[in-house]
Computed example of a mutant assay.
Amino acid sequence: MSDELVRFVIGPTPYSSWWLWLAVLLSLVLIGWYAAVFVFTMPGRRLRSLPVLGTARSELVKRRSAHAVRAIVERYRGGELASAPAAAAVSRELRAFLHAATGVRAEYMQIDAIAAGQLAVAAPVLADLIDAQFNADSSVDVASVSDSAEELIRTWS
């Protein structure tokens, strides 16, 4: 090989610094993702104690539950649901909300236990929903009780 061609032989080209910044950015996104998954899958009591996240979570739970109750009532008023299944669905959603909001396992409690505990304000609404669900001769208006359940969810503190 002649000496005049040696000047065209060079070492490997260095990589761009953008790859380094991309790797750093992706690492930070991955760490943020894991942190968000950890925080948002924490049990309710620990998450409620965090100042900003607890408030945001409780508002999100309220909004989601109120929307679900409103959708059930709209299906009931539209004739898609009978009174007993509508009352059961609203009761299930209200109990799930109470569990998410307070940590008390309201899904498995009797009305007397609910009335005696910290969920006492929800007991009359749940009693009316149970009456509408299991009593064929009930005079309970499912739409108005469901509206009361939605109002209870929205005003829960």
Rank of each mutant, 00 (worst) to 15 (best):
L28D: 01
L98Q: 00
G103P: 12
L47W: 07
V140K: 12
I72L: 13
R70P: 05
A86T: 09
A56S: 08
V9R: 13
A35D: 03
T13C: 11
S148D: 15
E107P: 06
A136E: 14
S27D: 07
V37M: 03
S2G: 08
A115L: 13
A35I: 08
F38I: 00
A68H: 03
S58A: 08
S58D: 02
T155S: 15
W19E: 08
E93S: 14
I153M: 05
V24P: 05
I153H: 02
R154W: 11
S2Y: 00
A68F: 05
E93A: 14
V39W: 07
E4G: 03
P124C: 06
H67T: 10
V37D: 10
A100E: 15
S2H: 09
D128H: 04
A89L: 13
A115G: 10
S16V: 09
A123H: 12
G78P: 15
S58P: 07
L22P: 01
A82P: 03
A86Q: 04
T102E: 01
A36I: 02
Y15G: 08
A136P: 09
L98H: 00
A127K: 11
S146Y: 06
V140P: 14
A56Y: 03
F134S: 07
E80K: 09
T102R: 01
A149N: 03
F38C: 02
P14S: 15
P12L: 04
G11V: 04
R75G: 09
L30S: 07
S139L: 04
A87F: 05
I72S: 14
L28G: 06
M1P: 12
R154L: 14
Y108F: 02
I31V: 14
L26Q: 04
V61S: 06
A71N: 12
A96H: 02
M42L: 15
R92D: 14
V39K: 09
I153P: 10
A122F: 04
A132C: 08
L47D: 11
L53A: 06
Y15H: 12
A56I: 02
A35Y: 00
A122P: 07
L119D: 00
L28M: 01
L25C: 11
S16L: 12
S17T: 15
R48G: 15
R105Y: 04
T13L: 13
D128L: 06
A84K: 05
V121P: 10
V121F: 02
D3F: 04
L5Q: 02
Y15C: 05
R154Y: 08
R154D: 14
S139F: 00
K62C: 13
Y108Q: 11
M1A: 10
V52Y: 10
S27L: 14
L129D: 10
F97V: 09
T13H: 11
S144W: 03
L152N: 02
S138V: 10
G78T: 11
R92F: 12
A56L: 07
Q110I: 03
L129Q: 07
L98G: 04
V90F: 15
A113C: 02
I10C: 08
Y34E: 04
L53N: 06
M42P: 12
Y15S: 11
G11M: 04
I114N: 00
R77L: 15
E107H: 09
T155C: 06
D112P: 07
M109C: 00
D112W: 08
W19G: 12
N135L: 06
R7L: 05
A87I: 01
L129G: 08
V104M: 11
V90W: 11
S2T: 01
H67D: 11
S91H: 09
I31E: 10
V125F: 07
A71W: 01
I10A: 12
E150G: 15
V73W: 02
